[in-house]
Amino acid sequence: MTTTTGSDTIERVGVAGSGIMGTGIAELCAKSGLDVVVAVFSDASLDKGPQRLAASLDRGVARGKLTAEQRDAALSRVTYTRDLADLADRQLVIEAIKEDEPLKLDLFATLDKIVEDPHAILATNTSSIPVVRLSAATRRAEHVLGLHFFNPVPALPLVEVVPSVLTDRAVSDRALTFVRDVLGKQPITSPDRAGFLVNALLFPYLLSAVRMVESGLATAEVIDQGMTQGCSHPMGPLRLADLIGLDTTVSIAQAMYEEFKEPLYAPPPLLLRMVEGGLLGKKSGRGFYPYA
């Protein structure tokens, strides 16, 4: 399935990064019938990336969400590479690397030189960095926007489409149509400000929960029980922070605090110490909770 703007048809998608988010985006695009090239940045990721994708698709088969044939077809549509030049023919490239502004700026500057189609969309999955800041690394700011997916990408229906003040209206309309009609997600247009829309609401809540633990007011278990059983949230704030990654939580909070200087966005000392100690949440095996 494809979407068009004039003669433009998005059939070839590139994903830069093969972590949790990059893998989820690649899986979603492959299951939507698109040709996907995933660029990775280490030899280890050349092995781990395909393994992570296959494991996710296998879970989908085990849960009855897709057939073995659909899994195999999706896998056949995804290629992994260490050479960014292999993204040259892509019509849409989605950046999904670490939430590190200098790294993202370097990547966008490189993609700008590599991607041949002048109408190709360069998108970022950043959770907090203003899109216009990343677009400044390119000579095609009108074709740069944010596509902010949520974890787990295959399951959660929402995608924030984030045009900057320099993004062409036709490009953002094309992205909205692509997300809705090709990927089958529910897009919303969010403002280009640190945290966008969802995280601007979510992160003060998460950080308040961390401060409750830090002050000794309540344990993580009690706080999470209160929100799941008292407010019908599917997951409590501390377990959600572990799922997001405590390092990512710090990065997003710092970006929002830098932009707004609001104390509610400042990461609490406990959170900073946990990250400095390597307690990153589910990804490291321990955060506010232990993981197998």
Rank of each mutant, 00 (worst) to 15 (best):
G277K: 14
L201C: 08
P163L: 01
M1L: 12
P187I: 03
G285Y: 10
L183F: 03
G22N: 06
L46M: 15
R193W: 11
E69G: 08
D8H: 13
T4S: 13
G281R: 03
A26R: 00
G236D: 13
L122C: 04
D224L: 08
I188D: 04
D47R: 15
F288K: 01
T138C: 06
E258N: 07
S284D: 00
F178P: 01
I94K: 04
G277R: 12
G6A: 12
G33I: 03
V132K: 15
V153K: 02
I223P: 01
D117A: 11
K282E: 07
L147K: 09
I97S: 00
F260S: 11
R139P: 12
I244V: 10
P234K: 15
A39D: 00
T248K: 03
M212Q: 08
E142M: 09
D86Q: 15
S284K: 01
E276I: 10
L122I: 03
L201N: 07
S128C: 13
D181H: 04
Q254T: 11
F196P: 02
T189Q: 11
E69D: 13
R52D: 02
P263N: 15
H233K: 07
F149E: 04
F150D: 04
Q229E: 11
I223S: 01
G17P: 03
R211F: 10
E95S: 03
G24E: 02
L238G: 06
M212S: 08
K48F: 09
Q225T: 09
V159M: 07
T81Q: 14
L270F: 07
V275S: 03
G17Y: 01
E99Q: 03
I94A: 06
E276D: 09
R140T: 04
Q70C: 12
Q229I: 09
D117C: 15
P130E: 06
L156H: 05
D247L: 02
K65N: 15
L201A: 14
A194Q: 09
V250R: 01
E221M: 10
F260G: 07
V182F: 04
T167P: 03
T3G: 15
D8T: 13
L240V: 10
P187Y: 02
K261D: 10
Q186W: 11
P152R: 06
A266L: 11
T248Q: 03
P118I: 08
S42F: 06
I94M: 09
L279Q: 13
G195H: 11
E99G: 01
A255S: 11
P268V: 13
